[in-house]
């Protein structure tokens, strides 16, 4: 391959005209620079639009200029530019100045992660209702792949849409089917999810806190662990 040529081109895309060696491209210097500028603009534009699309609510909250100041700092990080476009907003939420903006951005990123997560059947109240009690308590459960948990700095000030329900300092983001749900949950439900991450049984969760377990099931935060029956 031509790693040297590509390194030179990449350096010119990052550093501008002074980094473009005269022997790399054909055509007049003006034409070379216009072409490189067009490529650089495409790259820059794609990254910025990806961030704008990832954090629409946060951008509206902080304003266009502030958002792009934060985006600029985020894109200067070498770790950021190693991310594919669909993940380029990862870590950006922590860069906002206020708790309200950080909370909203973190929630938006969790929403996107839930949206892109693998599909899987969630444990539902109906499936539980169909089980005999002795079987019910033995059902092994894990968090649903689309389940995300966000620690809010200022939960009461979270700016989101009316589908947000519940109370507590944690925001549970779930997507049991096509719709994404936002639910504020407290310490007990959070602890139950931590238990489920290590794989546990529904019986254990119900013993710990039946009401919180019901909330997790209602919101589609859990899935049954499939067990092979031989």
């Amino acid at each position: 391959m031509s790693p040297d040529l590509q390194t030179q081109m990449m350096r010119a895309l990052r550093g501008g005209p002074s980094c473009l060696p005269s022997e790399l491209l054909s055509g007049t210097r003006r034409a070379q620079l216009r072409a490189l500028k067009a490529h650089a603009n495409t790259i820059n534009h794609a990254r910025r639009i990806a961030l704008e699309d990832s954090f629409k609510r946060t951008r509206e909250l902080v304003g266009h200029d502030t958002f792009h100041e934060v985006a600029e700092r985020h894109l200067e990080s070498p770790a950021t530019v190693e991310l594919p476009l669909r993940s380029i907003g990862c870590g950006m939420a922590a860069r906002f100045a206020t708790p309200r903006a950080r909370d909203l951005a973190t929630a938006e990123w969790a929403w996107l992660e839930a949206h892109g997560a693998a599909r899987a059947p969630a444990l539902t109240l109906r499936t539980i209702g169909d089980q005999r009690p002795e079987r019910l308590v033995d059902i092994a459960v894990q968090p649903h792949p689309a389940c995300r948990l966000v620690a809010l700095e200022d939960a009461d000030a979270l700016l989101w849409n009316p589908s947000q329900t519940g109370a507590g300092d944690m925001l549970l983001v779930t997507r049991p089917a096509n719709d994404i749900r936002l639910t504020r949950i407290g310490r007990s439900a959070t602890r139950l999810l931590a238990l489920a991450r290590k794989r546990t049984t529904l019986g254990r969760l119900l013993d710990e806190d039946a009401a919180a377990t019901t909330t997790l099931v209602q919101q589609g935060a859990l899935r049954p662990v499939l067990e092979l029956v031989l």
């Binding site: 391959m1 031509s2 790693p3 040529l5 590509q6 390194t7 081109m9 990449m10 895309l13 490529h39 495409t42 790259i43 794609a46 990254r47 990806a50 070498p78 530019v81 190693e82 991310l83 594919p84 476009l85």
Partner: peptide
């Protein structure tokens, strides 16, 4: 190409049309 040395570049960048490129 759209990446180099770990950096992802959201564009379709041109390649030199050489035997080396063809092989790769």
């Amino acid at each position: 190409w759209s990446s180099l040395g770990g950096e992802k570049v959201p564009d379709l960048l041109p390649l030199p049309m050489t035997d080396e490129t063809l092989d790769h």
